Amino acid sequence: MKNYEKKSFFTTLYLFFIPLLLLSSVVLYMYHQDKVNDIEQNILYQMKDYTFDFKGEKFTLDIIENDKKKQLFKIYHCKEGLCAYFQTASTGPYLLKVIYDKNKYKKVYNEFLTDIFKFSFIILFLLFLLSIAFAIYSLKPMKEALYLLENFLKDIIHDLNTPATSILLNSKLLRKRGDFDEIERIELSAKSIASLYKNLEYMTPNSINKDENISIEEIINEKVEVLQKIYPKIKFIKDLNPLIVQSNKNGIDRIIDNLMTNACKYNKKNGQVSIKIRENQVIIEDTGIGIKDTKKVFQRYYKETDAGLGIGMSIVKQLCEVLNINIYIKSEIKKGTQVILVFP
């Protein structure tokens, strides 16, 4: 199950299960109160029967002075347990106080409580299963829609590659006839389309080969050369030590391309992008607008501005996980963002 499917599943599960849990709790509480009342009323009628013959050891008896505040034939919770008051045979100023021992009542109540807990557990389990079934059922339309969307994207990816490649090839042929600024701009635009195509290719990088020796310094230099032409007002500061890693070249290229492109795209006017290589770390720092929520930035389709598609950082995160690269982001609004890649 994919991350967005998990999120949707658990959200639906909670939204369905919690109201059912609250409703069932109210019903069980009302049932508990009614049952306790039934138990006490049953004991009360047994007390009344006891006053006719005083047989048995279930109750104890006491005679007290008549008190108008005490109602006859009613259960009271007294310190001895359950008590009820009855009129004596004579018309004297006395009442019969019948007592049901506290320990006996606790035993009856605890037996009932055990039964209701067992019943509650069964109800809770059934409600949980019902909630899971509902959550799974609710995912079905979303899965179907996403399946259609992914197939649509695959078709777009396939169709996008052909014109981008054709533009690049024809621009190179045009260069042989003459070198114009317009041709260079066409090439840069075609490369931007090709970069988007590569991003779409890596939307679900489940497993890729990691058996290539890659020069990180070389990849960064190539990216800076291209980005400098696309963003001529951005100042690039490089402090690069040689770093060779064994990984996947296309995957590393996608990670660095997305991070450096974002550093330029969301930078301020006449801003700077600093790229450093320290031991096994690559540090990319910009003077841009910053990121409001660094925890959400890796979520697919999450955007804080209208620019972009919201898939670049999601692809970066997925590739980092597949290639065992740790990525850390620090950001401050209107001051800039720092991204650190730690290679294994």
Rank of each mutant, 00 (worst) to 15 (best):
K2A: 09
N3E: 15
K6P: 01
K7Y: 15
K7L: 14
S8D: 13
T11G: 13
Y14R: 13
P19H: 02
L21D: 11
S24F: 14
S25A: 11
V26W: 14
V27W: 10
L28S: 09
Y29T: 13
Y29P: 03
H32Y: 14
K35F: 12
I39V: 04
L44Q: 01
L44G: 02
L44T: 01
D49R: 10
D53Q: 11
E57L: 12
F59V: 00
T60D: 10
T60I: 08
L61D: 06
I64E: 08
E65F: 15
K68C: 08
C78P: 03
E80T: 06
Y85T: 12
F86A: 05
S90K: 04
Y94V: 14
L95F: 09
V98S: 09
I99Y: 05
Y100K: 03
N103I: 08
K106G: 07
N110A: 13
E111T: 11
L113D: 10
T114Y: 15
D115W: 11
I116Y: 12
S120N: 06
F121N: 08
F121T: 07
L129D: 07
L130V: 11
I132S: 04
L139E: 03
L139Y: 01
M142Y: 15
E144Q: 07
E144L: 09
E150C: 05
F152L: 05
I157H: 04
A164L: 02
S166W: 13
S166T: 04
L168D: 03
L169Y: 02
L174A: 06
K176C: 10
G178W: 00
D181G: 10
D181N: 12
I183P: 05
I183V: 15
I183T: 12
I186V: 04
E187K: 05
S189M: 06
A190Q: 02
A194T: 00
L196K: 06
Y202R: 01
M203H: 12
P205W: 03
N209V: 14
D211N: 15
E212L: 01
N213P: 14
I214F: 04
E222V: 03
K223Y: 04
K223M: 11
V224P: 00
K229D: 02
I230F: 05
K233N: 06
I234R: 00
K238L: 07
D239N: 10
L240M: 01
L240H: 04
N248E: 02
K249A: 00
G251L: 01
R254H: 09
L259K: 02
K268A: 08
V273S: 06
R278G: 09
R278P: 05
D286V: 09
T287F: 02
I289R: 03
I291E: 00
K296A: 04
K296N: 10
V297S: 06
D306N: 14
G308I: 09
G308S: 12
S314I: 06
I315N: 02
E321F: 09
V322Y: 06
V322C: 11
N324V: 03
I329M: 05
I329F: 02
K330V: 10
K330M: 09
G336C: 05
Q338G: 04
L341N: 01
L341W: 00
